[in-house]
Amino acid sequence: MIHPELISSAWNLPSIHATATPTTGTIHQILLLSTDETTYVLRAYRYAQKDRPRIVAEHALSTYAHAQGLPAIAPIALPSGDTILEHEGRFYALYPCAHGQQIPREQVTSPAIITAMGHCLGELHRILSAYPHEKVRRPSFAVDLASTFSKMEKIEAAIGEKACLDAFDHHILAMLSQRRTWLQAAHTVDVQGFSSVEHQVLHGDYQESNLFFERERVSAIIDWDQGCVAPRPWEILRTLQYVFNLDGPRCHLFLNAYREVFPLSFEELALTAHVYGWVQAHNLWAYSSFYLENNHRVRHLLTPRFTPFEDAWAEIASFLR
């Protein structure tokens, strides 16, 4: 990590008298820098040199959203006007500290907060619908059973090589077995099936860990590095699954608030859900990161039991019409 004095010099900041590392953040390194006047947030990217354009795209997207009136936290420019500092082969960006407070996922139960989240995402999507698609990445939703099974085997091998397996490891092995069995029996889903749903630019990672709240409103949206082009129901479904654990009443409240700002038909949502569930069944990113890359900051993302998305979706779909 770069020395704070170099950051202070690069951005012409007052003297930095304290630093701290937050507990959040699963991909990049974050450092809080305190001066006598305020606190800044330094992001140290784990991207390779070839990925610099992705940082440029992230910064452009958050800056656009901020300029349009969204509570987006945009990077602070260097005296040169650039927003990326390169030092010893690594990229850095500096941000103002977000106002408000974060709410742990298990405490996102207040109707006012859930409504605020829905309203904010609706406004975010409404504004980003005008953003040029070519300025952000367009992810592939293609999946391959053989590749998924190969990744499972690597994760299982990594677990098996541990000197001592704990109960959590055994649960993960059982989960992988459940997932493999389900995928072997499931009917393949055509991921082009939702091509008829309109695609647009999305934040890409809209969840409570990237939001701050103040007076029961979203006061800041951070971490724009997953910005992408996809159907907006994709991001909605991801939020319903990750934040609300597909809990019917909370999902209903969130989606109703979203629709008050940006209408969305149930047909678009259901069509996307069919593809989303299939792709998510192949999604082993967190398990690979934890067991193959030794990234222990993602441990909270690992679930020790596999529940097919389509099963959970069938139980809540009636709430979302």
Results as ranks from 00 to 15, higher is better:
Tyr64Arg: 03
Cys228Gln: 10
Lys162Met: 15
Phe91Pro: 01
Leu42Gly: 00
Ala314Cys: 11
Phe262Leu: 12
Tyr45Asp: 13
Phe290Pro: 08
Met1Lys: 08
His28Ala: 07
Ala48Ser: 08
Cys120Gln: 00
Glu267Arg: 13
Phe266Lys: 02
Leu183Trp: 05
Trp224Gly: 09
Ser219Ala: 12
Asp51Thr: 09
Gly277Asp: 06
Glu214Val: 06
Glu123Asn: 09
Ile103Phe: 06
Arg137His: 12
Thr83Phe: 12
Gly277Trp: 01
Leu165Ser: 05
Ser80Gly: 14
Gly100Glu: 03
Asn210Gly: 13
Ala317Trp: 05
Val189Leu: 13
Ile114Lys: 04
Ser34Gly: 04
Leu13His: 04
Arg305Glu: 15
Ile222His: 09
Ala67Glu: 15
Asp166Tyr: 08
Asp36Asn: 12
His187Met: 13
Ala257Val: 00
Arg232Val: 03
Gln101Ala: 13
Phe254Gly: 04
Pro53His: 05
Leu211Ala: 06
Tyr45Phe: 15
Asp205Ile: 03
Gly122Met: 03
Leu264Met: 08
Thr307Ile: 13
Pro4Lys: 03
Ala93Phe: 05
Gly122Ser: 05
Val136Ile: 11
Ala60Asp: 12
Glu260Val: 04
Trp313Arg: 02
Thr181Val: 04
Glu235Thr: 05
Ile103Tyr: 03
Pro75Thr: 06
Thr307Gln: 09
Ile55Asn: 02
Pro14Gly: 09
Gly69Asp: 04
Ala77Asp: 02
Glu37Arg: 02
Ser288Pro: 01
Ser196Pro: 04
Ile84Tyr: 00
Ser195Gly: 15
Gln102Ser: 11
Cys120Thr: 07
Tyr131Lys: 04
Leu32Asp: 09
Cys228Leu: 13
Thr109Ser: 10
Glu310Trp: 06
Glu260Tyr: 07
Asn283Leu: 10
Thr303Tyr: 14
Leu269Phe: 07
Ser196Phe: 13
Asp311Arg: 11
Ile127Asp: 00
Ser219Thr: 10
Glu198Met: 06
Pro71His: 12
Tyr92Lys: 05
Cys228Val: 01
Phe91Gln: 02
Arg180Cys: 07
Ser140Asn: 15
Leu33Tyr: 02
Val218Ile: 10
Gly25Ser: 02
Glu88Arg: 06
Phe309Gly: 06
Ser195Glu: 14
Tyr242Gly: 02
Gln29Ile: 00
Ala157Arg: 07
Gln192Cys: 14
Glu214His: 10
Leu145His: 02
Ser177Trp: 04
Ala98Phe: 01
Ile114Val: 14
Ile76Arg: 11
Gly100Asn: 07
Val279Ser: 07
Arg297Leu: 14
Gly193His: 04
Ala257Trp: 05
Ala312Asn: 11
Arg43Tyr: 04
Arg137Met: 13
Leu6Arg: 09
Asn256His: 13
Pro104Ile: 12
Val279Leu: 07
Ala10Lys: 05
Gln192Glu: 15
Tyr242Ala: 14
Ala281Thr: 06
Ser289Lys: 08
Ile127Glu: 07
Glu315Val: 01
Gly81Cys: 01
Tyr92Gly: 00
Arg46Thr: 09
Val136Thr: 11
Pro79Phe: 10
Gln241His: 12
Leu240Ile: 08
His300Trp: 08
